[in-house]
Design a protein around this nucleic acid. Sequence first.
DNA 1: ATTGTCACG
DNA 2: GACGTACGTGACAATG
Length: 971
Amino acid sequence: MTDATGTTETAAPDTAAASAPDRSGLYLVDGSGFIFRAFHALPMMTRPDGTPVNAVMGFSNMLLKLLADIKAEAVAVVFDSKRLNFRNEFYPDYKAHRPPPPEELVPQFALIREATEAFCLPCLELEGYEADDLIATYARLARDAGRAVTIVSSDKDLMQLVGPGIGMFDPMKNKAIGPDEVFEKFGVAPDKVVDVQALAGDSVDNVPGVPGIGVKTAAQLITEYGDLEGLLSNADKIKQPARRQKLIEFAEQARISRRLVLLDAFAPPPRPLEDLRVREPDHQKLIGFLKAQGFRSIVARVEMEMQRDGRIADGSASSGAASSGSAPGGAAPSPAAPSPTGDTAEAPAARTHALSDVEKRYELVQDLAALRVWIDRARTTGILAVDTETDSLTPATATLVGVSLATEPGLACYIPLAHGAGAAAAGQLDFDAPPPPAQIPVAEVMAALKGVLEDPAILKIGHNFKFDHQLFARNGVAVSPIDDSMLISYALEGGAHGHGMDELAELHLAYTPIPFKEICGTGKSQITFDKVPLDKALAYAAEDADITLRLWTLLKPRLVEARMVTVYETLDRPLVPVVADMERAGVRLDREALARLSQDLAVRLVEVEKDVHRHAGQSFNIGSPKQLGEVLFDVMKLGTGKKGKTGAYSTDSGVLEDLAEQGHVIAQRVLDWRQLAKLKSTYTDALQQKIEKDTGRVHTAFSLAATNTGRLSSTDPNLQNIPVRTEEGRKIRRAFVAAPGNKLLSIDYSQIELRLVAEMADIKALKDAFRDGLDIHAATAAQVFGVPLDQMTSDIRRKAKAINFGIIYGISGFGLSRQLGITPGEANTFIKAYLERFHELKVWMEATKAFARQHGYVVTLFGRRCYMPGIQDKNAARRSFAERQAINAPIQGTAADIMKRAMIRVPGALAAAGSNARMLLQVHDELLFEVPEAEAEQAAALVRGVMEGAAQLGVPLVAEAGIGDNWEEAH
DNA sequence: ATTGTCACG
DNA sequence: GACGTACGTGACAATG
């Protein structure tokens, strides 16, 4: 991750470095780290008033020496925030049993901040982050601006940052720390330090690591296997039995440990890098402070230096520059004096602006020189919002029409790539039409952007980045690292509202973006984006990147406040490249088989239609519920219809099945017709249309922010509802086939939701049954109805199965009675027996509903919030509905979380094993793969392992695999 | 654009 | 005592 700068061939004359040669160093002083070390290293001393000041003294000495020795143009002192930081969110014990600081140290915290201000140096701190994270963030920013960085600290946790352009300096031992010193300490290069720490752990910070593994062993293992994931996925190959066992058992703990020690170099900077410039110290103020502490020897040194340099202490840092640190008496920054440089304590609302408040500076980029300016801007800010425009909504095959970028709010550009000649739409030759506009060839733009888009030190931000990620991947660019403002919003407020850009812009920025319709029209006259004139394209596309950046700026910090960083960073964000690859892979369909099925269905539909009309004695549209109801209930007088709230007759399958049972043949024939019509229109006809010419495959789109529970959904076409329950339907499944030489591999979780009920409600009897590997429905039947397993009947088992499902849905006597065809009274008796046998369940359900009422949301096992607005509704029906949702959402949502964890780990596990299997589809508890025939069994075992190991619970997770030439066979 | 229906987990 | 119900999705055809 080090050769980020200057790798692109096109970057020959580095204009940023040439014209603004700001190569002077930035010094980042680890204030929090220093104070502890100085306190323990230096003998106790006190001020005349008795205040202990030994650490303050050490700190002042250190700063003075630093400022005298170095030629830094910028210095900042960084502190921990007082409150908990984001690490406590996923590991509450982080730095937990640290004793409170010694009594003599406490008053020195504030004095050290005062000292920093007396030296006219900026103090940096940020709620939710440690000093180390801010140091990592500013080190990244400065290095990318081409400036040398020195971290003044001896903390080993910062050693991971050492590399080209970034060094450390130990102020206590007075010696530099470079890659050699890091290797000496950890036995690996700086970029592998976190992997070693993840294994070795750290008792001081309460980082658990893997028991029995110290730094030495860790270094040896990491050297052999490359990195932590490489080691963990090959743990079974370790020779020493005890070590192998520990690595397998504590794999998850090692992963958590790595996240604990890994510094976040993308913390929102509390103030711009440019603000950190060293100012001429206010010597009078400095001397005043030092005298007040009784540091006479230091005062003497300062005065000597002033004389030597011939400086006169007269507040030379005049006007604006002095304003932030010049409060008399060294008091804490006065809130009454608004500082133009901006304090860290600024209200969140002030961080953003209504779109209309800021001048929009949007630029059309039509040559490489202009593009390079934007690339330089991205390197300076380390942050780049990106949006792509295409001629279609299927990113697997769409043509890239343009790219927009934004580097700061209001500052955005659009790079047209494939815009045609203005109004010459319809593809007709028009010799009077204007020629195509000036555009940089796509290949050149990609070559120029690749370095930035793949630079680990530049964060790329998108809204629904999965789409853009796919387009760049098709152009040979693997965008990383990324943030997605849509997914941030989803993690924050899933279920509370939608997360599309337009909706979020209204909600958070009080701004209505230019509607797509206004640019491209609608319906038959709609044009593709490549036909849009450049001025309009610029206004629309640049605005998208601009809004994305503004939303990110506003929403990213809220993740920390809401303690939702872990959900976002471990469940949602990493899914973006994984799902992008799935969509891009697509799935092969047998078009001829579908066509034959369509033909067959068409013939049979005509037959059944005739039959229905014959029974009815008249011709009508069976597909019209209105006409059908009138025929059945008004004309034929079959029972008494009328049900729906709109006054219309209900003709759904339940009603028709009742009629069929009463012997009305027409009802069964309508049901047959409905089934055939559904299969034809939704599947056999539609799926043929969805086969992409370019790839010969179908590419669904998975929505990552559509559901209330954290599940994915699939659209255009929906491949999560392909028929399977009836024989007719399974014929459609057989049209989903593997490419030649390949097999389809389907692996699904067995009973995952019921297992999670047992886990989350902590139901002992149910957990035992799962641990014993019993037939869970038979086992619950035995326990609830008191029937011995050897006397179990299929009917009793069926009833228990229905109750088990009902629990997951937030059971009601009415619902269960309808499902089982029994009276609500009987159903209630069953439920009562169930809740008595599994008494923990009732406790959990009541607690969950109470939580929902109190907070307006429920949480999954992994911390995802599912908002349910109806929970306080005055209407009893709506409230009951929300209560059932409150029961269901944590169960369904936790299952979704676990599936996401598995999906995120699958590609790495496959790659590590050298497998060529490709993940194609997810259907909530099932994953579908396409895999070379010879590798199928191996891939099945591997993926099963990943899925079963995706969470460590009190109940086992079980996944079952099937292999076949088509999806029906594999399932 | 909304409603009814039905495919899936 | 009365609400009207199993939870979560998306697509299609009819209809306003």
